[in-house]
């Protein structure tokens, strides 16, 4: 009897090690991908810079100094100063907080709701599908910025409200991708097998369908991130998004447009931050997609 228990325990231990190994597998696959590693590094460095902005800057992001307007990058001001003599480096690091927070929250909301609507439409089909798809079409028919303006003027300004405003117009994209992926995964026999073994709809959706649909969604989410950063700036530009003097990448870029011919840093550096963010998340997303797929072991 005791002996039996012991072997069971040994098996348990083996199981535990193997299960942990599975997560290690995923991380291993993520870091074996060189581009993925680069993506992770970019994202992590950006996050550190932004979260601990105070440590890396010596100027207040809103401190104006009219004696030092339009300074080129130097040791004192690593990225120069803007039209009010504010340190661009500080503004970009602090601005990243708003931009990234809003963009990430917006993407999460959009992807989350997209998953919900898309999977319901794709899984149940028929009338449910028809109603949801038409609703999404209506949302898509309204120009994204116009929709965001309408929602944000109704909700008011503030990071989370801005995030909600810009996420709404991104839902149809995610929902459409989700719907078509769910429909193709649903056609697989393993879904029928789950039905045959008595699984209910919820279990089938969460256990068998969703895990097989994440790949295109992750890619879509990372691509939408860049679009969201730009949308925020659009809203800020017309005074609905983030209010000055709170810095934010999009609005720094928008404000710099007037000086594009005479003073390059005010355009180049915000763009660089946005591009790096999108690039980093994109690489990270691609690598994550591959790492999560057990079929791509090598």
């Amino acid at each position: 009897m005791r002996r039996k228990k012991e072997t069971a325990n040994i098996e348990n231990m083996e199981m535990a090690t193997r299960r942990r190994g599975q997560w290690r597998d995923i991380l291993g696959r993520l870091f074996r991908n060189k581009l993925g590693t680069l993506g992770v590094i970019i994202v992590v460095v950006l996050l550190i810079l932004i979260v601990f902005a105070g440590v890396f800057t010596k100027y207040d992001y809103s401190a104006q100094d009219f004696g030092s307007r339009f300074l080129l990058p130097s040791l004192e001001h690593p990225m120069g100063t803007d039209n009010f003599g504010r340190d661009l480096w500080s503004r970009l690091l602090y601005g990243g907080r708003i931009s990234l927070l809003v963009a990430v929250v917006a993407v999460i909301i959009a992807t989350g709701l997209g998953i919900v609507f898309g999977s319901i439409a794709g899984y149940f089909g028929g009338k449910t599908d028809l109603i949801i798809t038409r609703l999404m079409d209506i949302l898509m028919a309204i120009p994204a910025l116009l929709l965001a303006i309408a929602i944000s003027s109704a909700l008011g300004s503030g990071p989370i409200k801005t995030a909600i405003a810009i996420s709404i117009s991104s839902i149809p994209h995610a929902a459409r991708i989700m719907r078509s992926t769910v429909m193709s995964v649903k056609g697989n026999e393993f879904v029928e097998a789950a039905q045959a073994t008595g699984s209910g709809n919820t279990r089938i959706i969460f256990k068998h369908i969703l895990p097989n649909t994440i790949a295109p969604l992750i890619v879509n989410a990372t691509l939408q991130l860049g679009g969201c950063i730009m949308s925020i700036s659009g809203l800020s530009f017309i005074g609905l998004g983030v209010q000055p003097p709170t810095p934010e990448w999009g609005s720094i870029l928008a404000a710099g447009r007037a000086y594009i011919r005479d003073f390059w840093p005010i355009i180049v550096f915000p763009s660089l931050f946005i591009v790096l963010t999108v690039f980093g998340f994109n690489l990270f997303g691609d690598a994550l997609r591959d790492a999560l797929d057990p079929r791509l072991k090598d």
Partner: peptide, 18 residues
């Protein structure tokens, strides 16, 4: 479902790859 079961033809698509 506990009493009647189904075995599928295609051992590739009938197993959840994840």
């Amino acid at each position: 479902r506990k009493k009647m079961q189904l075995i599928f033809q295609d051992p590739y698509s009938s197993l959840n790859p994840r």
